[in-house]
Amino acid sequence: MMQPLLQVSNLRKSYGRHLSVGGISFEIAQGSCVALLGPNGAGKTTTLRMIAGLLPPSAGSIGFTGSYQGGDFRRELGYLPQSPAFYGWMSGQEYVVFAAKLAGMNRKEAEGKAKAALERVGLKAAARRRIAGYSGGMKQRLGLAQALVHRPRLLLLDEPVSALDPIGRREVMELLREIREETTIVFSTHVLHDAEEVCDEIIVMKDGLIAEQGALSVLRSKYSQPVITVRTEKNAEAIQWLNSVGAKPFILEARLNGEHAVFNVDNLKQARHTILKEAAASNIPLLQFEAGSSTLEDMFMKVVGG
């Protein structure tokens, strides 16, 4: 068993009486890509800032293995905040060189690495232009370049695609897929789809706590439950019938929203048979009937919404 790269245990952060992160523990293995998933205000940014060493935790510990003794662990870290702010009077090239020098490179090495990093994120043509004239997508890519230039062992990205238009989003996701081959990535997002696209592990946060975590493949099968979706015409009789179905013994959980109902069931065959027979017998005006299995999205919505 390989030692994890990052070990977070019982991490807490409170501002006065407000608890932002309420004691979370997780491990991140070398070479993995982990998405920190959750709605706004779940404590994702606070967690990332604590890992990046920008915020002192109120309690708990963060262990980063492999950082040599006496060295600053931030040398091994690349961090991109939610809305990165640069110096507008600098050119993109100058900023990345600045970042590379701060990570300990000499001038010559920094210039070479900066050029490569900018080319990689597709900013070669704009490298000599002032950052003040960059678009939002270019700034985000510049942010990636400055986080990558020193080949960090851990890359922390806070909502890297949330503020981008579809094209910018596409580009950054492509980049992340490439980068994940080389280093360990932790990124936060509030969109499950983004996480599924590049990551193999997710940590779902809500109200400062971890609601669910694990490998995507494991979670997918865990939350793949038989589910029946029924929609009827909008009339009182039909809605009353849906309510009565919700109380049946084979229904594990019923979510009713007017004439739209989602039932988690234990036995799909039996449930389908019973519901359809009853609907026919009591002449219920069905519009839609679907039998299938729930997805991760359902789990996420339930965790986030409930």
């Binding site: 990046a52 060493g53 920008l54 600053d72 931030r74 040398r75 870290l77 961090y79 905040p81 809305s83 990165p84 702010a85 640069f86 110096y87 970042a99 701060l102 990570a103 300990g104 942010g143 400055q146």
Partner: peptide, 13 residues
Amino acid sequence: YNGSAELVLSKPV
């Protein structure tokens, strides 16, 4: 206030 300090201070500074 504009956040450029956050980015610089995430480096070994």
